[in-house]
Design a protein around this nucleic acid. Structure first.
Lengths: 323, 323
DNA sequence: CAGTAAATTGCAATCGATTGTACTTCGTCA
DNA sequence: TGACGAAGTACAATCGATTGCAATTTACTG
């Protein structure tokens, strides 16, 4: 068997030997310290490139007493059948992962649904990482507050909440809900449903934007048109099918996600009604998938990948601030 | 602000001091070495529990010159619009992640589509991990062979191939395709379509199982009934819609995945035909979602989570063998 | 009871980096 | 010319564990 040689990566000591200096000097040269002569610095950098030297991050992190890992927790709402396969989460994850990689950080993903996030503090999610990103608040705002008082930095994607002591990043959900509803109102719709669980902070804000738009057009919000449609495709279809079968009359719907909107469109079509002729639908997030659907889904744009990057940058600024 | 104290985790040296022994003895006691007296061993274990000692895996891995990380690469077929959001991949990932966690290993996920896996050897996917799990072979069988000759252990989920030098784990795709087709034949169907890209090794095997079943029933396989339907839901629907519009006559279809099957059912319904009355559908994988659909999807069961565990265990046995 | 083997435990090197401190050159100025 | 400060390097401790080898204690054997 032609065993390809284990190209054992070159170590800093070896590079130092080649350059005829000590580890310390190489280390300083690579981190561009002013304490090392410009000429030797250039020489070392050239040798490093030539020998394809790459610093051993594991050893580095060990010395610096950090893990080089950032944990990500998706606050999936179990009641709403929210699942990680939702493109919203995957795009967010993609943005986070890209940005972390650029900073030479690793990503640790919580992959079990979390009933009470306080328990995380004893788990690898917290113990093994330098910081934690929560995507969504679920219904655990107060727990997030508690956790943020501990030593480990966290950032949260979600809605602003009263007495919030954690670092938050999020879109403008009120305006989002308002815009979506307004769009439908301008199409002449008046019986506009709202699909989503308003116990979730972000959804609640969109709902208030929805009500605001309705009121501005002199339409009284109808409680029966606020339906707790789950996020997951199949469950969403079931829920909407039930709604249609109940003969509740409505001519439009604001959805809490694009997957939900696509489910609505499919279900309505199957039911023999036309979209948007009979019922107009607006989604939320603008996932890539939305652009492929026919006809193209109308949706409220959130740049999710970019949001992921912002989350990472926010966390890093906290981490560096603590240094 | 009530700053909760940074409960700096106790170190092995500190535990040793408490126990009145040295680090070495503690280390041996915790790894159940026969070289330490049973009584002291018990005492140390008790103290460890009492003080909630947890070994610093980062330091441990550093000393043992390994990373404690296993990389996972999903070989998404771009032409087939295969995407990580497919429940097949997510369930597989779940199984892998669970099993790795039980072994105190971290998971590193390749999240960009990989055109040529040989390039991975220069990336963190390889450099930063103790081993790599490939889910699927794509069309890169020979590259996998090449990679397997290098030093880093890999295992691959997929089909057996000629001159295969890498460790492979996989289901029995020939039998799977055979069973699915046979089921449809026994329902009396004769014009049975096959949906999927037969350039993918696993799909090719199922296709041969499909042909075998047909021949046994005296049905001649029709090339026009082998359709390269993409994996992704929306693209699959487009593809199947096109097929239906072309008035190609068929009364059943064997699908390459459950998502594909669910897409087929939805599209057929929208087209005004009935499932299974007009066209019967069989899926593949038995993802959780399949059980929720109505009527329940007929599918070929692959225990995906379990498969993920097998992949991990296989990789670990290679890793341990190399020691 | 001396002597040796076995059972335990301590000692110290090691993994690959970072960084504070000490030391060696210089150049400069009085 | 001798002293002094700055610049540039070398030295060595350190992060938290593992493990071969040395040292000590205990147990047996003749």
């Amino acid at each position: 068997m032609s065993q390809i040689k284990t190209k054992a990566p070159i170590t800093m000591q070896e590079l130092a030997d080649i350059a005829g200096v000590t580890r310390g000097t190489v280390s300083r040269a690579l981190s561009d310290s002013p304490r090392v002569n410009e000429k030797t610095k250039a020489r070392i950098l050239a040798l490093a490139k030539k020998h394809k030297y790459r610093v051993n991050q594991k050893a580095r992190n060990f010395r610096l007493r950090r893990s080089g890992v950032v944990s990500v927790v998706f606050m999936l709402d179990i009641k709403s059948e929210q699942h990680m396969s939702d493109p919203f989460f995957l795009e967010m994850l993609g943005g986070i992962a890209d940005c972390l990689a650029e900073h030479d950080l690793d990503l640790f993903l919580a992959h079990a649904p979390i009933a009470n996030i306080l328990e995380l503090q004893e788990s690898r999610i917290f113990l093994n990482s330098d910081g934690v990103i929560f995507v969504g608040q679920g219904e655990q705002h107060s727990q997030l507050n508690a956790i943020s008082r501990a030593e480990k930095p966290i950032v949260v994607w979600g809605a602003p909440m009263p007495r919030q002591s954690y670092c938050r990043v999020g879109g403008d959900n009120i305006t989002g809900g308002y815009l979506a509803t307004n769009h439908l109102l301008e199409l002449g719709r008046r019986r506009i449903a709202f699909f989503g669980n308003v116990n979730l902070p972000e959804i609640a804000l969109r709902y208030s934007g929805y009500k605001k738009a309705l009121k501005e057009h002199g339409v009284k919000p109808d409680r029966h048109l606020q339906i707790e449609v789950p996020f997951e495709m199949q469950h969403a279809r079931d829920s909407i099918e039930e709604l249609l079968a109940s003969h509740t009359s409505f001519d439009a719907a604001v959805c809490s996600s694009d997957v939900m909107a696509l489910s609505a469109i499919a279900t309505i079509n199957e039911f023999g009604l036309r979209v948007p002729d009979d019922i107009a639908i607006v989604g939320y997030d603008d996932i890539g998938l939305a652009r492929y659907s026919s006809p193209t889904l109308t949706t409220v744009r959130q740049n999710i990948r970019w949001a992921g990057r912002v989350l990472v940058e926010s966390l890093l600024s906290i981490l560096n601030g603590q240094n």
